[in-house]
Design a protein around this nucleic acid. Structure first.
Lengths: 257, 257
DNA sequence: TCAAAAGTGTTATAAATACACCCATGC
DNA sequence: GCATGGGTGTATTTATAACACTTTTGA
C-alpha cells in the first residue's frame, strides 16, 4: 500500500484546521469521447475504492470557489462552469466502512477521526469539451480514470447516486437549451453531435429531425466536407458560431426531441 | 425587548451541543390566498429582523428530516413535501451585522459566538393547500406572518434571494407538471386556478386556452355551479380527480402557457 | 338592457413526428 | 452495383396562440 510522505501528512494536518467541519463538495464532470458519456473518478491513496473528485471547503471560502478549486486540485481540470445539482445528507453518510483501510496508514488519529465523521456533501456538475484532457491527480490520490456513466454503479459511498442525479439534471438542461455544444471539440459533424444527445438522453432521436432543429438554431457554421478517411460518405464539418451560441444561452429555448 | 426565559436558554444551550456546526436549513413555503402568492416569515426574539423559517441539523438527523422538523417547530405547518432548491454558501454569509442585537440578551456568549459564525444553508421549498393555516411559532420567535412574495425584498441576510430562487424553481415545476393543484382547496373554480398560475408565473395567461388545457388533462371533476353569491355569472366548481392527478405526477407532462 | 366575468369555439401558425427519398463512398 | 451511413424534403399530427362569440348574472 502506498505510503504518505511526511510532507503530505503535514500538509493535510495543516489544512484540516482550516476546513469547515462535516461539509464536503463533490464534482461530477461529464465529457463525451465521441461514443460515450463519461465521468472522471479517482482512487484515494489509502483505500481501494473509486470515488468522484471531492474535497472540503475552507472556512473563508465561497462554496462555488471551493468547488472549482477542488476539481482543479484533483484532476487539473480548469476553467469549467460548475453548477449545483443537489445536496446530500443522510444521517449515516460517512466513511465508517472504509476506516479500517485508513487505520493502516501513518495518518494521525485525529485526521482519521475527522474523515470518519458524518459529511453533508454539495454536488456540482459540469460539462467538458472533447479536448483530450489528461487527469493528473493530487498527491492524495493514487489513481484516476474516465469511466462511462453506465459503469458508475460500483462507486463507493453514495457516489453512484451522485452521478445519476447529476445526469438527470444534465438531461433537463439539454432539452431546455442548446447548451451542450459545450461538449464538442472546435469542429464536429452533426452525426457526432447526435450521438452526444443520444448518449445523454439514453434513447435514440430521429436523424432528420435532429439535423433540422440543430441547423434551424443557426449556431453552426459550415466548414466543408470532412477530410478524414471515412468508410462511407464523408459528413459535413461544422464549427460553433460563438456569438449566436452565447446569445442563445440567455434565453430559454425549447429543444424538444 | 422580549427576554428569554431560563428554560429557553437552557434548552438552546443543550441543543447547540447536538447540532452540526455551520450548517443551516431554510424553508420557503408557498401558499396562494386566492389573490397572491405568499410565504411565511418569522421574527427572532432578539432582533428586529424578518427571516424565512430556518434552523439547524442534529448530528444524527437526515437533512430532509431536519427540514420537516424545523418547519414544524417554527410554524406548526406539517405534512408538506419539501424539495431542495439550492445550497447557499458565500464565505461572508453570517449574522455578523445582527450580533449587537443578540449581545443585549441574556444569551450565553458561547451561543452568540456560535450563531455569529459563517453558515452554509440548504434551501427547501414546498407548496401548501389553501386551508387556512395559522402560523404558530416556537418560543424562539416573537412574531410571524404571511407576506406576498412581491414584498419579500426586505428580508434579512440573503433571505430575499432564497425566496426568489425558490420561486424560479417553482415556476419551472409549474410548467412541467400540473403539480400545482396542490395549492388549491378541495373544491375550486377554473378562474381561481388561473389566478394561481398567473401569480406564480408573474404574467397573464389566456383565459380560453388555459381552461382548455386544464380540462384536457382530465383531472378535474365537475361539481356544479358555485353557490356563492357572485356579482356576475357564477363559475363552475370543480374538485380534483385524485387518482388521475397522482398518475400524472409520475410522467413528465408539458403544460406550456 | 348593459357591463362584467364565465364559458365555448374557431382559426392561423408553429412545432413535433414519422417517414421517404436521394447522395457519396468503399468494397 | 450495392450496402451503409450522410444529407434533404415532405406530409401528418399536435401544440400554441390569438381572438371572437355566447351565456349568465346583478344592477
Amino acid at each position: 500500500m502506498t505510503k504518505f510522505t511526511k510532507e503530505t501528512i503535514a500538509s493535510i494536518s495543516a489544512d484540516f484546521q482550516n476546513y469547515m467541519p462535516q461539509l464536503s463538495i463533490n464534482c461530477v464532470i461529464f465529457r463525451f469521447n465521441g461514443e460515450q458519456l463519461q465521468v472522471p473518478i479517482v482512487q484515494p491513496l489509502q483505500a481501494n475504492i473509486w470515488v468522484i473528485p471531492g474535497g472540503f471547503v475552507y472556512k473563508d471560502e465561497d462554496i462555488d470557489v471551493a468547488a472549482k478549486r477542488i476539481l482543479f486540485e484533483q484532476t487539473q481540470i480548469d476553467n469549467s462552469i460548475l453548477s449545483q445539482f443537489g445536496t446530500f445528507g443522510p444521517a449515516n453518510r460517512n466513511f465508517a466502512s472504509f476506516v479500517n483501510a485508513f487505520k493502516n496508514s501513518e495518518l494521525p488519529i485525529e485526521i482519521i477521526k475527522w474523515i470518519s465523521q458524518r459529511f453533508v456533501t454539495i454536488g456540482y456538475y459540469s460539462v467538458l469539451g472533447r479536448q483530450p484532457i489528461e487527469i493528473k491527480t493530487s498527491p492524495l490520490f493514487k489513481n484516476s480514470k474516465w469511466i462511462n456513466v453506465e459503469d458508475s454503479d460500483t462507486l463507493a459511498l453514495d457516489h453512484s447516486l451522485l452521478v445519476s442525479e447529476a445526469r438527470k439534471v444534465l438531461c433537463t438542461e439539454l432539452l431546455s437549451r442548446p447548451l451542450l455544444l459545450s461538449f464538442m471539440p472546435p469542429t464536429f459533424t452533426i452525426p457526432e453531435l447526435q450521438k452526444l444527445y443520444e448518449s445523454i438522453l439514453g434513447r435514440p432521436v430521429d436523424r432528420g429531425n435532429f439535423r433540422q432543429r440543430i441547423l434551424k438554431s443557426n449556431m453552426l457554421i459550415k466548414i466543408g466536407p470532412s477530410k478524414e478517411k471515412s468508410k462511407r460518405r464523408p459528413p459535413i464539418v461544422y464549427q460553433l458560431d460563438k456569438k449566436k451560441y452565447l446569445d442563445s444561452l440567455t434565453q430559454d429555448i425549447k429543444l424538444g426531441f
